[in-house]
Simulated scan of single mutants.
Amino acid sequence: MKILALESSAVSASVALTEDEKLVAQSFQNCGLTHSRTLLPMAENLLANCGVSLADVDAIAVAHGPGSFTGVRIGVATVKGLALGADKPCLGVSTLEAMAWGARALGGDLCCVMDARAGQVYNALFTVEDGRVRRLCDDRAIKLTELAEEIGEAPYFLVGDGADLCYNTIKENCTGLRLAPAELRFATGFGVAAAALPLFREGKACSPQELDAFYLRRPQAERERMARLAQTK
């Protein structure tokens, strides 16, 4: 079972090809270029280098949020286009869950965080049991102060592009926190594929038309517009 997986919901971009649980190939970039320039060429080059075509792939997966509004849209739109052209099913997975699957070799409890600005992070908690990831709470946008109260002194590995921010802000009150190694801290295509595989086996793939982005809150520009409208009433 081959899955092509794309991730562009945060600062980095990544594409992976897996066969069942095995990583066949992966490309990762964290160089500051826009995902609209990098993501599709990364996917095309990876497939070409592996001698694999989209016709050989069983499904195409993407991290569909939460994350950067622009990055999420680019990833979802790219997968929709690829899947429509190749007549393949799609799988949308949580970016936070993809992070957890990518870091599951750490074992124990994982606190996945992405910087959501304004003193908040996108967050979910997971635990690893027998090499599999189990979710402990839903994805959410939460204040760092509230997350610190919830975690307390429990031992968690911090994973995600918000890990440094989270650690530096709440480490004094959360003495069990540890930073995951840098190479396991970002969402990757392999993490997306690993999170998508159980869904595919459970028959939870969707059509390209059904694939959609998952946002935990409205874009900042829309929130500001609504605030201005509220002030005029």
Rank of each mutant, 00 (worst) to 15 (best):
L4C: 09
L106Q: 14
G108T: 04
N30G: 09
D138G: 07
A221K: 05
D109K: 15
L91A: 15
E153H: 14
F126H: 15
E44C: 02
L6N: 03
L125R: 15
S12Y: 01
A16H: 02
I151T: 04
A116H: 11
L91G: 10
D212I: 00
L147D: 09
K22F: 03
M226D: 11
S94C: 11
D115W: 01
P66M: 08
R223T: 05
A98M: 02
V192Y: 00
V24M: 10
R134V: 15
L4P: 13
V11H: 10
D138H: 06
S27N: 06
A194Y: 02
C31G: 15
M99D: 07
N30Q: 10
G32E: 14
L144Q: 12
R117D: 15
G152I: 05
G65R: 08
S68A: 13
E146Y: 02
Q231E: 06
R132W: 12
A196N: 04
Q231M: 06
R228A: 10
A105H: 03
C174H: 05
G51H: 04
L229Y: 01
M99H: 06
F200Q: 08
A221V: 09
A180H: 07
G191N: 08
Q29D: 07
E153I: 10
F200L: 14
A105T: 13
L144A: 08
T188Y: 02
T18C: 12
F126I: 13
L4I: 08
E44H: 04
T188E: 10
L39A: 03
P89N: 10
E172V: 07
E224Q: 15
P219G: 00
A25P: 01
G107M: 13
V128D: 09
T169F: 04
A100Q: 01
Y215E: 13
M1D: 07
V15L: 14
A118K: 14
Q120E: 15
G67E: 13
D139G: 03
G131C: 14
A13T: 12
G85P: 03
C90N: 01
A61I: 00
S207Q: 04
D139L: 03
L211Q: 00
R228Y: 07
A63N: 06
A55Y: 10
G107F: 07
V11C: 08
L110W: 12
L199W: 11
V57S: 07
S9K: 10
